[in-house]
Design a protein around this nucleic acid. Structure first.
Lengths: 341, 341
DNA sequence: CTGAAAGCGCTTACAG
DNA sequence: CTGAAAGCGCTTACAG
């Protein structure tokens, strides 16, 4: 029924091995032979059997995307980029959710990963936050000798490839944007205390304020936890004293920014006329809100794409570990745009 | 390094074939032999090589989730259910986005699917809306003789397995809930005109109104397109005449319901005191809004799970096509809850 | 530049 | 209840 490499060889009048060489773009094939084989392959609608290739070469042509993330939106974007890259290089992506909530210690986390990857041999693994910061998970991959790449890890990992963006720089630029709009008192809402991005975004905000010689008052910074609810609570505190409240609030993610907008609307504070609001992430919510949110667009799709590339691109794999810094984008929408500016 | 079936056979003192029988739960193995093999397999941390299994049995142990859907939330949930089912049966899920926007006619859509599945042989395919309604896609699968199952198809497909929920019934129950709360004038906002769920949900609404002998005025039904924006527009029309506007609005998805809430808030109409609002889908948005949305929770995760089960469960596959109707759930939250009721 | 042989780790079909 | 042989469709390592 389906054509095999032997069929192609027979019809083309060459050996199986030559067909293999042509299809894998190996050198040492006469141009004429190459063309002939290619023509026959097309004619026979030949496509290699992945299982056979895998068995013979002890590769799987599979890349696992291992995640443990509550945000379907984030995963969907990473996955989308990863799949596109896989297609380009003849691989396939297998998403593998990994629930580590029951595995408290490092050793049992390691065992969980080992178990997961024992059943399915893959040629590479992509780790998304917060797994990219888990020592147990990383250790399992290292001892199993499976190539892997970290997406947005918090630390500067030595000897491990990673794809990331500069959260500090992004938060700093967003704050600078607000300062350029004339704001002098800018409130900030921090994210979840255990999330690695929280400290980085806060640092970017502080840097911009310091560079502009603007003091940051104790009452201008509130702790949140990335939830809408925490944005509401923080906004209520920031906006309590109407005579001395900030003219702009930078929430370190969109959900919290939505909470700010909702409080402002309830208190009759006009956004952006009386209060500018910024978020971070550019989730779908940012465009649904009224007014639409000014926010930071992370290169999530690109991180997924680049992660796969690092693992499977012949030009990159088996090379020393590399760190890929991808570009973010400030998306300016109505929530922080002074009229006429 | 990694144990093979031969290693297990050697250590257990039996033939390769016997090990194979034990591991695949085939009959005709002495209990003692079975136990011995199992013990050795565990000891050696043996796990079968998928590629070898696949090559020998001409199966792949892979299921493809083919989608072309703008909603990452929907896909993420389907995928989550599908992966869990795959794990239970020893399969793996490979998500395959399929962009059909450039393939206008049925023939080229068929070719696109053929091309996609030619490279990756899979044991089954799951088709999500709107692909589950595409004749070209269905035809490709049929001629390739790949087992497949439709998720939420609109029509009554003959001879094709499907998993779905009853949109008519759900919309009817939601409307009945509003009626039971004492509402007599209930506005309705229809969905996108080309989406199959639109007509079904509207029918459920009409049925409930008719059953309760409540007339549906021309001004009570507005056309939307499932977007937040269209919900805003529809709400503005429905609420224009404050003296004769409905006391409840049932939007046929959450995004449009969010639009209604936003208009009400702008007009100073209290939700739910002056206006009850209901949505459909129970997206994350439903819980972020203030007040939180009363809505219909679709069994999306369950559809993904069941779809895989139909394809790979030995008790179900190779059986005649079956239709699986899964249960929805009315989620009553503050946006449509009369106080004290 | 090309090919014949062996083998990857399983299952299938058959035999006993 | 158990096993020996052949083969799935490729690649690897070697030879020429």
């Amino acid at each position: 029924m389906k054509a095999t490499i032997t069929d192609v060889a027979k019809v083309a009048g060459v050996s199986m091995k030559t067909v293999s060489r042509v299809l894998n773009n190996e050198p040492n094939v006469a141009t004429k032979t190459r063309e002939k084989v290619l023509a026959v392959a097309t004619e026979l609608r030949y496509s290699p059997n992945l299982a056979a290739k895998g068995l013979a070469s002890s590769r799987s042509y599979l890349v696992a995307l291992v995640y443990d993330n509550p945000s379907p939106y984030y995963i969907a974007k990473i996955q989308s980029g990863a799949i596109d890259a896989c297609r380009k290089f003849g691989y396939h992506l297998v998403p593998e959710p990994l629930d580590l909530t029951d595995e408290a210690d490092e050793a049992s986390q390691e065992e969980a990963v080992r178990h997961l990857l024992h059943r399915l041999p893959v040629d590479g693994v992509i780790l998304t936050p917060p797994l990219s910061d888990s020592p147990g998970v990383v250790k399992a991959l290292e001892t199993m000798k499976i190539p892997f790449v970290l997406v947005a890890p918090s630390g500067r990992e030595n000897g491990i490839s990673s794809v990331k963006m500069d959260d500090i720089q992004a938060a700093q630029e967003m704050t600078e944007f607000l300062i350029a709009q004339g704001h002098k008192s800018i409130g900030f809402i921090k994210g979840h205390i255990e999330h690695s991005a929280t400290a980085l975004r806060y640092e970017g905000y502080r840097k911009a304020m310091a560079n502009a010689d603007l003091p940051v008052g104790r009452n201008e910074v509130k702790q949140g936890d990335f939830s809408f609810r925490s944005g509401v609570t923080a906004a209520e505190e920031l906006l309590r004293n109407r005579s001395a409240c900030p003219t702009a609030i930078f929430a370190s993610n969109d959900d919290m920014a939505a909470g700010v907008v909702s409080v402002a609307s309830r208190l009759g504070i006009a956004v952006p006329d009386d209060l500018s609001v910024c978020g971070f992430d550019d989730t779908p919510l940012a465009k649904i809100l009224f007014p639409q949110l000014t926010t930071v667009q992370q290169p999530i799709y690109e991180m997924g794409y680049q992660a796969v590339k690092v693992l499977v691109d012949p030009a990159l794999k088996n090379k020393p570990a590399s760190t890929h810094n991808l570009d973010f984008k400030l998306v300016v929408r109505d929530s922080a745009l002074i009229q006429g500016s």
